[in-house]
């Protein structure tokens, strides 16, 4: 006798096929991209044998070097700023009583997730243009500020989740034992919050590293991050060098996501 089974989507006919299609669509292009980054020939579509030459050429390309340095500087600064702001925002939205408009505040913090990116980009372009006219400054800060802003919700989410999951009585116990609010935060809240803060920072870092649209609109002439450099290259001669750079970016992202996963798993007691 078999018991009547509950509805299970995995037993529906065609499930395997649809699932396979999705995975192929998601991963086949990426796999091809990685494979052709090792192509010995000039083409990104015709295989001519294995070689590291495009990695070497990318490594030696001064423009790629400059773009990488810029990308890393922006991503590091943006993730630091965004994470600090996100910690404060998360504390304010989880450690205070519900106040009038708390839902509105929550929405506003996450605004960059909802507004079309191109709108933000155009808005920043116009705003920065006005600032440039007024001040004459054309440096890196525009990009750092722009990246920090749109990275905030990505850093905010894991930090807020962590704070909400934390036992409030720990902070009360610390306050009860004569801990002033700042010391309670430093001695009890922050050590518990670390995994969330690290996860938020890593997420913000990856998001900043990947960004094209806002960067393209907000950057000053001559500034290029890795993604905007690659976009520029695609308009000219396309060689597997682009594949090689993409593969490295992919590796960094995957490494950070894996680290994020391990971190969130290991610290849950």
């Amino acid at each position: 006798m078999t018991k009547p089974r509950a509805f299970d989507v995995r037993r529906q006919s065609g499930f395997a096929f649809v699932a396979l299609c999705c995975f192929v669509l998601l991963y086949l292009p990426i796999i091809l991209l990685v494979v052709f980054s090792f192509n010995a020939g000039q083409s990104i579509a015709i295989w001519e044998g294995f070689s590291w030459r495009w990695y070497v050429s990318a490594w030696q390309n001064e423009k790629v070097q400059d773009a990488t340095v810029l990308s890393l500087i922006i991503a590091t600064c943006a993730s630091l700023v965004a994470t600090s702001v996100a910690v404060m925002a998360a504390l304010a939205t989880t450690r205070t009583g519900t106040f009038r408009g708390s839902a509105l505040v929550f929405g506003m913090i996450n605004q960059p997730l909802m507004i079309p990116e191109i709108v933000t980009a155009v808005a920043l372009l116009i705003f920065f243009a006005m600032v440039k006219v007024a001040t004459g400054y054309t440096g890196l800060w525009y990009l750092i500020i722009a990246h920090s802003a749109f990275c905030i919700p990505f850093a905010y989410m894991p930090i807020r989740a962590r704070l909400q999951g934390m036992d409030l009585s720990l902070e009360q116990a610390a306050a009860d034992l004569y801990g002033t609010p700042w010391r309670v935060f430093r001695m009890v809240t922050l050590p518990q919050l670390w995994p969330g803060v690290l996860a938020g920072a890593m997420l913000a870092f990856v998001i900043s590293l990947d960004n094209v649209i806002i960067t393209e609109f907000a950057k000053s002439a001559g500034q290029d991050t890795l993604p905007t450099y690659m976009l520029g290259q695609l308009r000219r001669v396309v060689t597997p060098e682009i594949n090689a750079i993409s593969t490295v970016l992919l590796a960094i992202s995957v490494a950070l996501v894996v680290a994020f996963y391990l971190l969130s798993k290991s610290k849950k007691q």
């Binding site: 036992d167 009585s169 720990l170 009360q172 116990a173 610390a174 306050a175 009860d176 034992l177 004569y178 801990g179 002033t180 609010p181 309670v184 009890v188 050590p191 518990q192 007691q269």
Partner: peptide
């Protein structure tokens, strides 16, 4: 007075020991 300025200490129902 805020909790940290009161001359009382509490034993919590769930103990609330600092796990770190």
């Amino acid at each position: 007075k805020p909790p940290y300025a009161r001359p009382v200490n509490t034993v919590f129902q769930n103990y609330a020991l600092f796990p770190h």
